[in-house]
Amino acid sequence: MTTRLPVASSPAGVVSALVPEDSLTDIRSGFDQLQAAVLEQAHVPAVTLSLCRLRVLQLHGIEVETPPGAASGQAGSTGTAALADPQGRGHCVGNWHREKIFSPAEKACLQFTEIYVMDVQAITDDMAADVKQHYGDAGLVVLIEALGLFDATARLQRLWLSRPAGK
C-alpha cells in the first residue's frame, strides 16, 4: 500500500514534527551535515543517489511526486537541491531493471538498494562488486551511507508522520 506523506529529506526533518527547532540542535545539524556531505561527495553522482532514494521510498510505500526538474525533498531543507532528478526519470525507477534509460552503473546501485531495504543480510558479494566496478570502494561506502540515511528517514517518517486510515 502506498501512502502520501510529507516527505522528509533527513531524520532531522522527521523530528521537526516532534520538537521545536531549538531542541537537539547538535544531533539534528549532525544528520543534516552528514546528509549534505554524502550527497555532495565526488564518488557517486547525486542523481544516482536520488534515484536510489526514490526506490527506498517506494519500497517503504511512500508516494513521492517527481515532476521533471523538481526537487523531491520537502520537509527539511538540507540536501534538497541535490535530491532533485533533473532528468525526470523518477517515475520509472520501480521498473529500473527493464528500463533502458538507466545506465549500468545506476542499475547496479538500484539493485543494491532493493536488497539493502528488503534484507541487508541478503546482499551478495557480486552485488557489491557490481557497484564497485563503476564507483570503486569509496563509491560503495558512499552508497551504503546514503542508503542508511534514506532508509532511516523513511522508517521514522512512517513511524511518526503516518496517520490511521481516514484520519
Binding site: L18, R28, V120, L147, D151, L156
Partner: peptide
Amino acid sequence: EPELAHLSLCLAYFSLFSRCAVAL
C-alpha cells in the same frame, strides 16, 4: 517529546551504522 525525538535519532544513527557494517 525531546526524549522521543532523541530516541528516534539514536535509532536512525544506530540503524545506519549497523546496516553499514553488515553491508560492507
